[in-house]
């Protein structure tokens, strides 16, 4: 593990990738997200932190419209990806999700071979011209997922046979294989042991070079370790958003301070 180099890194020059304006989310009658405004930058790791049930995962799922799959969920407000409102009627969530990939809390490889797991996205989006092309994409994705060396000899073994940490890196590689621009990660390490966690965290840091990464985590240490920007959510409100170093060392809001010092949570 490395000693929090992110605090020193200057990130101000990055352009905005996603901007959210007055986002409200309702589950039936209850409001889960209240009036959230945030600008997420490209080539940056943004961490969402906050106590359980604060709405951080819900908000994350809004960013690639995963909430569409829940019947009673309703989103109001505007979320722009590269200046285009993703909740516009003309936007096809399928096309959106190709640009905004997602990695879930529990590793969820498909009950297929490792190769087919990675090739699934490129196949449905038609990214490969031929078999050789596809092989190349798969290898590239596995390398970027930092798992190539471990699985290159058994690409046709089932993906479910890997260890938990390997499965999660496989899922990240799977998400990377579709060439997304943003990568959303919903507590990607919560089901992993410490060693696997550190491997995934290293991987996240590497991914920052090409993607905007948004990670939800309940571990403040993890947020401090991997992110440049941190947003603190509480009871559906975005309480504070800023550079990770500032949030952890000099929070402006008393609620943020209480959370970070462990008084609420």
């Amino acid at each position: 593990m490395y000693d929090n180099p992110n605090l020193e890194r200057k990130v101000a020059q990055n352009e905005t990738k996603i901007s959210a304006r007055n986002v409200q989310v309702f589950y039936g009658d209850s409001q889960a997200i209240k009036d959230v405004n945030i600008e997420i930058e490209a080539r940056t790791v943004t961490a969402f932190i906050g106590p359980s049930g604060c709405g951080k995962s819900t908000f994350l799922r809004c960013l690639n419209r995963m909430n569409d799959t829940i019947d009673i969920c309703r989103v109001e407000g505007e979320i722009n990806l590269d200046g285009e409102n993703i909740y516009d009627k003309r936007v096809d969530p399928v096309q959106l999700r190709a640009k905004v990939g997602m990695v879930f809390q529990k590793p969820n490889p498909f009950p297929k071979s490792i190769y087919d797991n990675i090739a699934y996205g490129p196949r449905i989006h038609g990214l490969a011209k031929n078999k050789a092309d596809l092989d190349e994409i798969v290898e590239k994705a596995l390398r970027r997922g930092a798992i190539w060396n471990e699985v290159k000899d058994r690409l046709h073994a089932p993906g479910t046979g890997l260890s938990g940490g390997q499965q999660q890196r496989l899922c990240i590689a799977r998400a990377v294989a579709t060439e997304p621009e943003v990568l959303l990660m919903d507590e990607p390490c919560s089901a992993l042991d410490p060693i696997a966690t550190s491997q995934v965290e290293e991987l996240i840091d590497e991914l920052r070079e090409q993607y905007a990464v948004v990670i939800v985590t309940h571990s403040m240490q993890q947020a401090a370790r991997v992110s440049q920007k941190t947003a603190f959510f509480h009871l559906g409100n975005l309480v504070e958003y800023g550079d990770t170093g500032q949030i952890f060392t000099n929070p402006k809001d008393p609620r943020t301070e209480s959370y970070i010092t462990g008084r609420i949570g």
Binding site: V94, A98, G101, P109
Partner: peptide, 18 residues
């Protein structure tokens, strides 16, 4: 079939029928 399986696929931009 676990919902996580479907989420994984939707998250990659697959349609329902896919």
């Amino acid at each position: 079939v676990p919902q996580a399986m479907r989420d994984g696929s939707f998250g990659l931009g697959a349609t329902k029928s896919e």
